[in-house]
Write a protein that binds this DNA or RNA. Structure first.
Lengths: 344, 344
DNA sequence: CTTCATATCGCAAACGTTTGCGTAAAAATA
DNA sequence: TATTTTTACGCAAACGTTTGCGATATGAAG
């Protein structure tokens, strides 16, 4: 039961029709220099013989793969899922295929994925950096071969690639300012490594909002964690042992915020009366937790579409003028119960 | 600034060393018939010239891609993420690359992905069916070319492909029996289309548990939804208008269960006193909601590993004996607050 | 009836590997 | 020393497309 059947090639079609393989090839791709009639015959015998175009041979000849690679730092957030949907929409419209690689927030896996996609000869790359990625050497090979790379969300600001991001500084500022407006005077920030741009910017926004309101900043109010489930628990424990207790918390990830909130509640803390909480990402969990979580929303689907459009644009133009651009998509604060101290 | 630099090929290496390209090719892949010394020289000049193997040419010649495709019906659940992690672990160990495609629970997208991966000439396929997929013709092309396909979780039982699943009947039975043991006598089942095996089996388990306990079955206690957020709300509304009110609910998706629970609570229903609830999947949200959600846990990572191992096994053996196997991975009921009526 | 433009199509090279087979040299054996 | 085996490597075909260029036939224009 071995696979003995040979694949049918354009030669088989050509032979059957007594024409050349060149004509078949052209006929299959709607080349204008082929008579309607012969093209029709070609298509007919193609399906008759069960022909499938050998993309590998085609890629080899054309020196292109019509494929773009995507590297994401995580998968199970609906932000990322939305981004992927946005990317997919644009790329399929433009006739590109997609290869999605997952780095699991690991620098090593990100490197492996980058070189892997490079060897697979993707025509372009869209990537979001892992949490602990600081070295970008694995993208240098792309630049050397003039393969466009676009970063989204998690970017490296020193890089001269195109980037599509949100205004994390503004978000951090808005979130913090909102807490201040609710009367908070002692606000904790729970976030991830400040080496990653998104957290660095949110941190700055947090500080700027404090400064503007004339509130003191304290190192001990900033908790650098990994934004996992465990992180939520630890953040709660830290808050519980603080003296004086903070009256607000900005936790830059909805899931961690939810876990933290839950842990605080279990220890008798009232949300938002004792501590007001703001998360980040507008994940579904924020609407499940009680009270519902105030958070920052930003449209993943737009980010994906913009990143993909931008990449395809770069692929289209031979001229590598490539004005290095940073695209910023809108974002907004969504106020819900977890932060509404003065609603009465 | 056009990309003028030609790629270096094995010919360039061969020329520089005054040997043949065949020797270079063999040297690069550790062929035993190459002297240590020449191999070393080859590797050295390879990196010196910045050589990268042209996988496309290699694939064309070998008629293999060393790539396996994965089609998932969704992405943003940690079940699927775990499955992908499991698959990735095994496949990378075996030297295969992965292409992940996402069908967004859409039959059309699933078909598109299947033919796309087929044209990309993956060596094998691992897939989970979309909710409304009933026609499997898009996998026929794989069988025709003897490309192994393995289904996981969402499978078609009539198919003669290998499958790796959980015992959904047992899960449904256990969940329902647990509710009965908690004193429930009027149990609602909220689930998705019974054409999909997982929901069909869970439904049967539900019915069998009722029968065994001598409890009556009622069509009006079964709600077929799509297990979205909206579904959770609708399920709650349905339950609220039921007369008499049910005292238990088995909702075959944690997120929907959480939304439903929340909506019920908002309408004055006490969980679990008035209605006990069991979900499915052991998603993170189940530990956030209050009370925490009783659910069914099953290890995605094991499913992924098993599916991948099974596929690679099929790829290894030329002999297509291929005993059609159905592999069942363990699963278990996790009891938490949402169903514990008689904890006092 | 020439001349020329246009419409169709074929030739053959190229893309970069891999690999069956052959061969020369070196080593082992008789 | 003569013969056989082993070692190490080269030749050239094959994988299936795509495409620049040339060739033929057809019709239009003069």
């Amino acid at each position: 039961m071995k696979n003995t059947k040979k694949e049918t090639t354009i030669y088989d079609i050509a032979q059957k029709l007594n024409i050349s393989s060149a004509t078949v090839s052209r006929g299959l791709q709607d080349h204008p220099a082929i008579k309607k009639e012969t093209r029709k015959k070609i298509l007919e015998t193609a399906i008759e013989l069960g022909y499938r175009r050998n993309i590998i041979a085609s890629n080899l000849r054309r020196q292109k793969t019509n494929t773009i690679g995507v590297i994401v730092h995580e998968l199970n957030s609906n932000f990322i899922t939305s981004v992927l949907a946005g990317i997919e929409k644009i790329t399929t419209e433009a006739g590109y295929d997609l290869i999605i690689a997952h780095s699991y927030e690991s620098y090593e896996k990100e490197v492996a994925n980058a070189t892997n996609l490079f060897h697979k000869r993707v025509d372009g790359l869209i990537a979001s950096l892992a949490l602990n990625t600081t070295n970008l050497n694995h993208y240098k090979q792309y630049h050397d071969k003039h393969i466009p790379v676009i970063f989204f969300d998690r970017v490296e600001e020193r890089s001269d690639s195109a980037k599509v991001i949100i205004d994390n500084h503004k978000c951090g500022y808005q979130a913090t300012k909102h807490l201040i407006e609710q009367g908070c005077k002692n606000i904790v920030l729970v976030t991830a490594s400040l080496t990653r741009n998104v957290y660095q910017q949110r941190y700055k926004g947090y500080r700027d909002a404090l400064d503007e309101a004339g509130l003191p900043f304290s190192e001990s109010n900033v908790l650098i964690k990994d934004l996992s489930e465990q992180c939520g628990v630890e953040a709660a424990e830290y808050i519980l042992q603080m003296n004086p207790r903070p009256d607000g918390a900005f936790i830059t990830n909805d899931f961690s915020a939810a876990v933290c909130m839950k842990t605080l509640k279990e220890n008798g803390v009232n949300i938002p009366e004792d501590i007001a909480i703001v998360g980040f990402n507008n994940d579904a969990v924020g609407k499940i937790i009680e009270p519902q979580l105030t958070t920052i929303d930003y449209p993943g689907i737009d980010m994906g579409e913009i990143a993909a459009k931008s990449l395809i644009e770069q692929l289209a133009e031979d001229t590598k003028i490539n004005q290095i651009s940073t695209l910023v998509v809108r974002s907004e604060l969504i106020v819900r119960g977890s932060s509404l101290k003065n609603r009465h």
